[in-house]
Nucleic acid binder design. Structure first.
Length: 988
RNA sequence: GCUGGGGUGGCGGAAUUGGUAGACGCCCAGGACUUAAAAUCCUGUGACCUUAGGGUCGUACGGGUUCGAUUCCCGUCCCCAGUACCA
């Protein structure tokens, strides 16, 4: 073995051996448990950035671990290679999108391979190649047959200057990203996939995967789909001149009963507040408004037109839009109270959600409150909060609310009530025998030590102020109904359900559920995507292509200008075709599919990448899928992960797969950010590489000033690392300077995987140092180490490449208690820690454990030349285990060291080696340290056998000199002994 | 605003889920080796006090529960992320 560790040499050697031995190629093998490890596929921008490296380093570490644990691991890679950047490059530089994409893939694959990631490259998929997008089209046709793909009019962002459709990002701020002209909305016919047909399944399925997914992702998906349970309520409309009023009957929005009544339907989640309604507010686009525009006064019509125009303006998220609206002069009757309410148009009501009409209840809804205040509408309170009620009925307090609220009340109730009852309804708790109600302020005063009587008199004013403040905002919680006719006195929470039922039985509404999730618009007026396989025929209409005509190929060479409608529309060869039904001349659809289509099912293509008939063989899918672990950035928490889940459910309904959820477990890794320095004169950004920037820092480690190599002061900040930001560390450079193993080790050690990672150069140097230390250790012991490997589990089954290697199952040395015994204990404790952490998907803490083990080997008192057989055995076991466990972080280095250990250069780790086995009897400590506390303060420590009884420990504690100091002459109140943990003596 | 997640040394972060707070690494300081430097190795490294044995404080802040709280409960402040008038 080389005296020094040369990462580059080692890495190139093992990358070659792995490739030659096809080490990472996996096939279906019913005998072995499978593990499908998947990382989100990248867009081939041309450069790997550190975010990618982090993502693939985690995935690869897990892959190595599972492989060493004996799983048949599938670890594939592919390219999300359709999409806008290729078209932008074509526009800007006149390059061919296909060539540009292919070149980028070649460059990035080279970078990936230099990092040494263990992929089965045979299974690589490319979204932009016809062999793949053929099946995008295949799925589209299937969904069309299933009624899940349909076409309808919708609005797109449109730049009339460039004659181009724009994505929301390209139209941000309401201006075209290219020419800066204002963006308008344009109606276009677009294809949609019916994701809404699966909304409930997508929501309910979250429960199935909840345990394996980050809570934040589950939450965001659930919010995105936005299920709200509530009720529809129909309000009868009255106009001053009824004969002029026209109520179009629109499904779900309005209704006309047999009595000829004209009704507007509102959606509300809080029917219980309906007695507090002061108006009905409609969206400007509401059909009832639009149908009756001529009956309104000119001022009203103008205002409505104005609101409508304002609504189409793309909104800037930062600015809160001021409430606006107008009274139409129409009236509507509250079906519960019989009260007549004015009908308004309001800019805060959206046509796209619910029914485009709301009942305005200012006392109990913040938006309605704001609206009522602005226009001087009456505000009537119909719910009182629980506390106020409690004063009237002091025996029983019902608390209805979320977990947090209930906790808050529960802890207060403990002080003031004799009994707490947890009701069956998990949302409620009930305190019995409560003394008094109290406001927040009173409770705080009380807990600060105020006397009850004094509190009431002295703080009376303050309490009133507090109550007044509460009246000045909308009260949106549940409570008890007042001013609500026959419902007064009821709990509003219960009334909500009962009132919805009343609406249904009275024929003026029903319980209803609405969703935020819309159908998925997949049409893109772009070139670089899968063509939608549809033909328009003058006689047959919309005709799906025949399966045998797939793939509908993209033309090879077409001018791309970035303006005008879909570029494909300009290619006559593409557009002109024959009707698949009647063979007469017809036109092709020229829109292409959203690239999210490609990423919705790519992970199934890996299972069967060259299948020409089907997207994949269902039998192969039955073995490999679902994905056991998916890893990627949380920027895909919503769209991609909902679409992929939707696609899976559709495939299940098509009979291709037999499960509901594609990803059992999801890991979202945090961003990699870097300190970025700006040269003020040139505007250039620099990443802080050694020697390029001199930095001074303040006491907190924050940058105080930065100076470039040539002495110029620089500006600085922290930004996401990427090529486009100009602050990306180039992975190739990392590999060149430090080696791939060190880069991977550092990136996994530096922070928990879900945290943001601030890249710093000193840290990676630490990783190199650690690898060098391990290298030196092995070299130091090398003369004594040759022979069969020395750890149980190390080598059970060995592949054809490496040859058979015997297991050397060491027995614990007879002379327990020496330094060898200590090292063996550390070795086995480490094995347990590392395996447990990997199983928990923790990648930073095992490194610390491995460093400790390596330090322990380094601290071994005996030199190799004087070591006894047992001592050599202990060291050999420790080094063998260390090397094996280091593999997921530094596979090249581990292979090289392992080859030294066993004298076999064939790549044993990649070809059948096993993770070391933890042996409990060896890990067990001979002695444990027992801290002794007096009144909870640490005063002394005892050494004891782990099996020492509680009584014995107590006796030992009292015998301790230091303990005596604190206990002599004191009364012993209590002694707590926690076995193997501690002794706490309470004295007075 | 709302929702979710957080707040532990100079820094990244540990802590068996209620039981010795600060593992491991980085930075920094001192020492050994060297003609010298680099590399390497050793020592120290939460704060304050100290009679050198230790003592006191310390996990954003204020309370509570407990023999014991970074961990559980309540309140306050701050940071990050998501979201945006979703009725």
């Amino acid at each position: 073995m080389d005296e020094k560790y040369f990462p580059k040499k080692v890495e190139q050697k093992w990358q070659r051996i792995w490739a030659e031995s096809c080490a990472f190629e996996a096939e279906v093998d019913a005998e072995k448990p499978k593990f499908y490890a998947l990382e989100m596929l990248p867009y081939p921008s041309g450069n790997l950035h550190m975010g990618h490296v982090r993502n693939y380093s985690v995935g690869d570490a897990l892959t190595w671990y599972k492989r060493l644990k004996g799983f048949n691991v599938l670890h594939p890679f592919g390219w999300d290679s359709f999409g806008q950047p290729a078209e932008d490059a074509a526009v800007k530089r006149g390059v061919n999108p296909r060539e540009w994409t292919e070149d980028n893939i070649v460059a990035m694959r080279g970078q990936m391979q230099r990092m040494g990631f263990s992929y089965d490259w045979r299974r690589q998929m490319f979204a932009h190649r016809p062999e793949y997008y053929k099946f995008d089209q295949w799925f589209f046709l299937k969904m069309y047959e299933m009624g899940l793909a349909y076409k309808r009019m919708t609005q797109v962002n449109w730049c009339s200057h460039d004659q181009a459709t724009l994505s929301n990002e390209q139209a941000s701020g309401g201006l075209c990203w290219r020419c800066g002209n204002p963006v308008t909305k344009k109606d276009l016919e677009q294809w949609f996939l019916k994701t809404t047909a699966y909304t409930d399944q997508l929501l309910d399925g979250l429960a199935e995967i909840e345990a394996g997914w980050p809570a934040s992702v589950i939450k965001r998906q659930s919010d995105w789909m936005g299920r709200s349970e509530g009720a529809f309520v129909d309000f009868e409309v009255k106009a001053t001149d009824d004969s002029l009023f026209y109520c179009p009957i629109v499904d779900g929005l309005t209704s006309a009963s047999d009595l000829g009544k004209k009704r507007i339907r509102v959606f509300t989640t809080r029917v219980d507040t309906i007695y507090g309604a002061n108006a009905i507010v409609l969206a400007a686009e509401h059909p009832v408004i639009q149908a009756n525009l001529d009956t309104f006064s000119e001022a009203v019509s103008e205002k409505i037109a104005h609101i409508r125009v304002e609504n189409t303006r793309p909104t800037d998220h930062e600015i809160e839009i001021e409430k606006d609206g107008i009274d139409t002069g129409l009236a509507a009757v509250n079906p519960f109270s019989g009260e007549e309410l004015p009908v308004w148009v309001g800019n805060y009501v959206m046509m796209e959600y619910g029914t485009g009409a709301v009942m305005s209840v200012p006392a109990h809804d913040e938006r309605d409150f704001e609206f009522a205040q602005k226009f001087g509408l009456p505000i009537r309170r119909v719910i009182l909060e629980t506390y106020t009620i409690a004063e009237q009925a002091p025996e029983i307090v019902d608390v209805i609310g979320d977990e947090h609220e209930r906790n808050e009340y529960r802890s207060e109730l403990r002080e003031t009530t004799t009994d707490i009852e947890e009701a069956d309804d998990s949302r409620r708790i009930r305190g019995v025998g409560r003394e008094t109600g109290a406001t927040n302020l009173e409770r705080q005063t009380a807990s600060a030590g105020g006397d009850a009587v004094e509190r009431r008199s002295d703080l009376g004013m303050a309490v009133e102020d507090e109550r007044e403040r509460q009246r000045s905002v909308a009260f949106t919680d549940y409570g008890f109904l007042i001013n609500s006719g026959e419902w007064s006195g009821k709990s509003s929470y219960d009334a909500k359900t009962e009132m919805a039922a009343r609406a249904a039985s009275g024929g003026f509404g029903e319980a209803a559920t609405t969703y935020r999730l819309r159908d998925w618009g997949i049409s893109r007026q772009r070139f670089w995507g899968s063509p939608i396989p549809i033909v328009y025929c003058d006689s047959c209409g919309i005709v799906p292509e025949k399966y045998e005509n797939l793939p509908i190929r993209l033309p090879d060479d077409i001018p791309i200008t970035g303006t005008g409608e879909s570029p494909l529309a300009k290619v006559a060869d593409f557009v002109e075709t024959q009707c698949p039904k009647c063979d007469s001349p017809a036109r092709r659809e020229t829109d292409t599919m959203d690239t999210f289509v490609d990423s919705s099912w790519y992970f199934f293509r890996y299972l069967d990448p060259s299948n020409d008939e089907m997207p994949f063989d269902p039998e192969k899918a039955a073995y490999w899928t679902p994905v056991d672990q998916y890893i990627g950035g949380d920027d895909h928490a919503v769209m991609h992960l909902i679409y992929a889940r939707f696609w899976t459910k559709v495939m299940r309904d098509m009979g291709l797969v037999k499960f509901d959820e594609p990803f059992k477990r999801l890991l979202t890794q945090g961003m990699v950010v870097g300190e970025t320095f700006f040269d003020d004169e040139t505007g250039k950004k620099l990443y802080h590489m050694p020697g390029t920037v001199t930095v001074t820092r303040d006491a907190k480690g924050k940058i105080a000033s930065a100076v470039s190599a040539d002495g110029k002061p620089l500006k600085f900040g922290i930004e996401r690392m990427s090529k486009s930001k100009g602050n990306g560390v180039d992975p190739d450079e990392m590999v060149e300077i430090y080696g791939a193993d060190a880069a991977r080790l550092f990136i996994l050690f530096a922070a928990p995987i879900e945290n943001e990672l601030v890249w710093n150069e000193a840290g990676i140097e630490g990783a190199v140092r650690f690898l060098q230390r391990v290298w030196r250790l092995v070299r130091k012991w090398e003369p004594t180490l040759l022979g069969p490997p020395a750890v149980a589990g190390g080598f059970t089954s060995i592949s054809k490449y490496a040859g058979e290697v015997e297991i050397d199952n060491l027995q614990p040395p007879a002379t327990a208690g020496g330094s060898d015994r200590k090292l063996r204990r550390k070795t086995h404790q480490t094995i347990k820690r590392v395996a447990d952490d990997f199983d928990d998907l923790q990648f930073n803490t095992p490194v610390a454990a491995l460093m400790e083990l390596s330090n322990a080997i380094g601290d071994f008192e005996v030199e190799p030349e004087n070591a006894s057989e047992d001592e050599v055995a202990a060291v050999r076991e420790a080094i063998t285990a260390l090397t094996l466990m280091l593999t997921p972080y530094a596979p090249h280095t581990s292979e090289e060291l392992f080859a030294v250990l066993i004298g076999n250069d064939n790549g044993i780790l990649a070809n059948g080696a096993r993770f070391p086995e933890y042996q409990e009897d060896l890990a067990k400590a001979d002695e444990v340290e027992i801290p002794v506390q007096i009144n909870g303060k640490l005063r002394s420590r005892l050494m004891a056998q782990p099996e020492t009884s509680n009584e014995e420990l107590e006796k030992m504690a009292f015998a301790d000199e230091k303990v005596r100091e604190y206990t002599d002459g004191k009364e012993i109140v209590k002694v707590i002994v926690v076995p193997k943990r501690l002794v706490n003596i309470v004295v007075r």
